[in-house]
Design a protein around this nucleic acid. Structure first.
Length: 717
DNA sequence: TGGGAGTGCTTTTTT
DNA sequence: AGCACTCCCA
């Protein structure tokens, strides 16, 4: 045990060895958060204060859950397999499988991923005759998810106007449809589980007594429902050990409530708050820059990172003439770093939005530097995989309309839109699933549909006794999927992916399958399908290869690199204009994003921007990011002088403007102007000439606006 | 049925 | 610019 606690610093040690109390650990970037979390569990178990079954540890991503499990098993000699360590969704799924009767779900209920959900919403909206202009399916999805994440059922949703009322009505229909089909979406997993615990007193008591210690990772990312879920489970005396960093909360847009951290402080008055502020990752100058930036945010819980690693290098700042120029600079520097012995994998290029990767990729490709872009299509999201899974889902649950529609005519079997319309009408009338309604369909179309039903039935019979991988293999072959992709000229890769799916199933049976099939009564197939929905799979080709890492700042959270390039540091891009338009909260989230980006770097950090950038097919003139102006000049090393004579335009401080040709009336990009209504702003882009001329102005208090010069009065300031 | 043309959108993303 | 999605025609 002394080993366990060796090399922990004072606050880490204090956190790990806290008595059974509620605690909030404010863990700064690179301060050993995961280590504290896992050591805490290990310490509790190895000192016999708690059995492994008394622990509930929650994370957001499968990756984090896996890492925690792996680290834990290296710390204590216990079987971590059966422990309740997982994602919110994974754990709720586990609970719901165990108690499917109590929540009124079919034994082998299916989980819809976002794409499935969108498909269902589209279908339903169409059937209900909703105008998709006024009610875009994506918005309807968001509406439903947002409500569920607030813990609100349709009956509790408030509607102040008729438009919202329509959406609430739709929410009702959606719930009904999900129940009819026996499917749940991601948010439903949580809400259903929450309601189960809330309403079922014996069950609640059971779990409240079982879990004595509830540990939460990345607490700043929890939404309201997740927090309520935790509170419910902790209602019987269990202690919550929440680890998080309010400065790294970057998922507000998907429902995360940083406010939960303050609420936690309040709700568990006397919660021990411990700050982990010693950073073991970055050199001093890098941390100083991060601290300087984040200080501009209000309402922080307060925390200042420090290091004893020394100042290190200054932060390199480069301003390119164009996005291409910026990319060339970045890639040239990378070549040098590699030449000097740095491992490509230890170099990361970060950007605010995915679209920015294109130019960078092009340059990397040209210079033959191996690179890897994160954040593409994931394994279980590929169409061929989704098709195969849809067949499998129909075997377990014929009422799954989404699955039915996905493959009823794939590969094509002459079932067109017409017959499907008839089928849907029939299903709607009898309140039954498409599969059920298919029996009633007559005529030529009925025959084709009938053949499909018989196919599914025979697949079910044929695979009944087979082990999981063979079921999948059989289905892929006999459904005609394999044949379809064999004849498709670009089907080779898809065939390989389908093989990979069979492999995945084989591994699944060996690993998780054993545990899952004990827990979940749905059998191996149902467990595997749940696994496929919950873990979209980071099976990226070329993993482990030496390659420069490209990703968005969001994707970089939790990672670290020797050298980091933050690119596109321009006003409107980073901070993003949409966020800026949202006001103070939006801007502060962007600032936290910048904070996350900076703190990824160990030794060397580059801040790059461009004076012009291709955006949406147009050249846009850019002003350097306001964040650059928030870093003390003394920490920075400017790598280049302005390449054009600066028109000496002060913009929000002293970090200079962009440059371009005058448009009309002496107005040009970079110029600060005043508008009677919108106030002071900076011209960011121009378009057209003469009477058609328009300028885009970034107003300090009103955000980005396009203005026609013919009408708008702009006076240079 | 399937492809070609026309249309519109475009921050971040996990489960 | 690029991509996804829809619509319409052969």
């Amino acid at each position: 045990m002394s080993d366990l606690l060796a090399n922990l610093n004072a606050p880490q040690l204090q956190s790990v060895t806290l008595p059974p109390v509620h605690a909030l650990i404010l863990a700064g970037a690179g301060s050993g958060k995961t280590r504290v979390l896992t050591t805490r569990i290990a310490w509790l178990i190895s000192t016999n204060q708690l059995g492994p079954q008394g622990v509930l540890a929650v994370t957001f991503t499968n990756k984090a859950a896996k890492e925690m499990t792996a680290r834990l098993s290296s710390l204590v000699p216990i079987n971590v397999r059966g422990m309740w360590i997982g994602t919110f969704h994974g754990l709720c799924n586990r609970l719901l499988r165990a108690h499917y009767r109590e929540v009124g779900l079919p034994q082998s209920f299916q989980i819809m991923d976002s794409a499935d959900q969108l498909a269902m919403v589209k279908r339903l909206a169409k059937n209900l005759g909703l105008d998709d202009e006024r009610f875009p399916p994506r918005e309807l999805c968001q509406f439903i998810n947002a409500h569920k994440e607030q813990g609100l059922r349709a009956a509790q949703a408030e509607a102040y106007d008729s438009h919202t009322q329509k959406r609430v009505d739709f929410y009702v229909e959606y719930e009904n449809q999900c129940n009819r089909e026996g499917v749940v979406d991601f948010a439903e997993l949580l809400l259903r589980c929450y309601e189960l615990l809330q309403r079922n007193e014996p069950l609640r008591t059971h779990y409240q007594q079982r879990f004595q210690q509830i540990l939460v990772d990345e607490f700043q990312d929890t939404n309201r429902l997740q927090y309520a879920w935790l509170q419910l489970l902790a209602g019987g005396g269990a202690k919550i050990f929440a680890v998080g960093d309010d400065d790294q909360s970057i998922y507000r847009f998907r429902g995360a409530e940083v406010g939960n951290m303050r609420d936690f402080e309040r709700d568990y008055a006397g919660a021990n708050i411990i700050r982990l502020e010693q950073n073991y990752r970055s050199h001093g100058n890098i941390l100083a820059a991060a601290n300087a930036i984040i200080k501009f945010n209000s309402d922080r819980l307060g925390k200042n990172l420090w290091t004893d690693a020394g100042e290190g290098e200054r932060i390199r700042v480069f301003e390119g003439v164009s996005d291409l120029d910026e990319a060339r600079f970045v890639i040239e520097e990378i070549r040098e770093l590699i030449r000097d012995g740095m491992t490509p994998t230890q170099i990361a290029i970060l950007y605010r939005s995915n679209a920015q990767s294109r130019v960078l990729e092009h340059e990397l490709f040209t210079k033959a530097i191996p690179y890897k872009v994160y954040g593409g299509l994931r394994f279980f999201e590929r169409q061929e995989i989704k098709h195969a899974l849809a067949y499998l889902r129909l075997l377990g649950n014929p009422d799954d309309d989404t699955a039915f529609l996905r493959v009823v005519n794939f590969p094509t079997r002459g079932i067109g839109a017409r017959s499907l319309e008839n089928l849907q009408a029939a299903a709607h009338q009898t309140h039954s699933s498409l599969y059920n309604a298919a029996a009633s369909l007559s005529g030529k179309a009925g025959q084709a549909v009938g053949a499909f039903i018989r196919l599914i039935e025979s697949l079910r019979l044929e695979t009944e006794k087979l082990p999981l991988p063979e079921i999948i293999e059989h289905v892929i072959e006999k459904s005609g999927l394999a044949e379809h992709y064999r004849t498709d000229k670009e089907g080779q890769e898809r065939l390989e992916n389908l093989d990979e799916l069979i492999n995945a199933a084989a591994t699944f049976v060996d690993d998780d399958g054993v545990v899952m099939s004990v827990e979940g009564e749905g059998g191996a197939l149902a467990s595997f399908l749940a696994h496929a929905s919950l873990e979209s799979g980071e099976h990226q080709a070329g993993e482990g290869q030496e390659a420069v890492q490209l990703m968005t700042v969001h994707a970089a959270k939790g990672l670290e690199f020797d050298a980091v390039f933050i690119t596109g540091l321009e006003q409107g891009l980073f901070p993003h204009e949409n966020a800026v338009n949202e006001g103070k909260d939006g801007l502060e989230e962007e600032r936290r994003l910048m904070y996350v980006a900076i703190t990824r770097a160990r030794q060397r950090l580059y801040l790059c921007s461009a004076q012009t950038r291709m955006l949406h097919g147009q050249t846009r003139y850019c002003v350097p990011s306001s964040f650059l102006g928030e870093i003390p000049e003394s920490l920075m090393l400017r790598l280049n002088k302005r390449q054009k004579a600066a028109p000496a335009v002060p913009v929000f401080g002293d970090f200079g403007g962009g440059y371009a040709e005058p448009v009309v009336d002496g107005l040009r990009v970079g110029l600060t102007v005043e508008h009677a209504k919108f106030g002071i702003g900076v011209i960011v882009a121009t378009e057209g000439r003469g009477a058609d001329a328009r300028v885009q102005v970034n107003f300090a208090s009103n955000g980005m606006k396009w203005l026609a010069l013919e009408y708008a009065k702009l006076t240079p300031v």
